[in-house]
Amino acid sequence: VVSDAGNWCLIESDPGVFTDLIHKFGVKGVQVEEIWSLDDDSFINLKPVHGLIFLFKWQQEEQPSGTVVQDNRLDKIFFAKQVDDKQCLCHTSNPINIAQLKACGPTAGIYTQQTLFEFDKQQPSEDDDVFHFVGYIPIEGRLYELDGLKDGPIDLGPIPPGTDWLTVVQPVIQRRIQKYSEGEIHFNLMAIVSDRKMVIERSITQLQREIEESEGDTSSQEEELARLRVTLETEETKRTRWQIENIRRKHNYLPLIVNMMKILAEEGKLLPIYHNAREKARARHEK
């Protein structure tokens, strides 16, 4: 990942990356999970959901989805405007996985491969896609859309009392998906949820206390306890995987690549790799 012209910072749309980023911003007790569909089932084990991050292929000339908030609600809503003027989006040639977010400030360096190299990519070609993140969040009974390319938070209307805000946001995102993606899968959805490990550990502690204090049959609690321990283990495995992936993302691969290529070349193994790659490039070019 390279920091492109215009100082855009490319961020991979990955729950591990977003979780780490959010923690680096200083927010504790939350994590990010990828959501595969908007059905209620997808959220069942993740509730409470504090916000949604929607990644999509950016297109010019969007209809405004609501009114821009300009009153004193702005004191309470943190909005990171990503553009100061009519600055255009930079492009990425990696569809789906990479998106751009400018409001990175001091963390901009976190997910660029450090000291890899400064590299000015050529002007984006026509088939390069531009991806963009938008956030949805309930604040004091109203649903807001946070789009850094807009002038401010967009008010999407009230969330009826007693209603789960997810049922209000679902049709909004659904409409967007339908509009953009006739036959395309160029979007991705992530949920900001409570720290799963923390939530599970709390439930385990509580169950253990119940079992200790109970004088009757505790078999159903024991069963639940066993289930929670498995879930906790899964969560811990995932954390370890995220950690490894994040180390991999931040690593500077230049010395490894150069030294590996040197060994391969000296062994006469690099030219065949190059020829193979050239064939693949040609085949793709002719398609």
Binding site: F119, D120, L256, A277
Partner: peptide
């Protein structure tokens, strides 16, 4: 593990374009 990771593959890809841009 490293050479089969998507992160390494991405770095090789980036290296390839950088090399062919003459900037390396």
């Amino acid at each position: 593990g490293t050479v089969t990771s998507p992160q390494f593959q991405q770095a090789v890809s980036l290296f390839s374009s950088a090399l062919q841009s003459g900037q390396l």
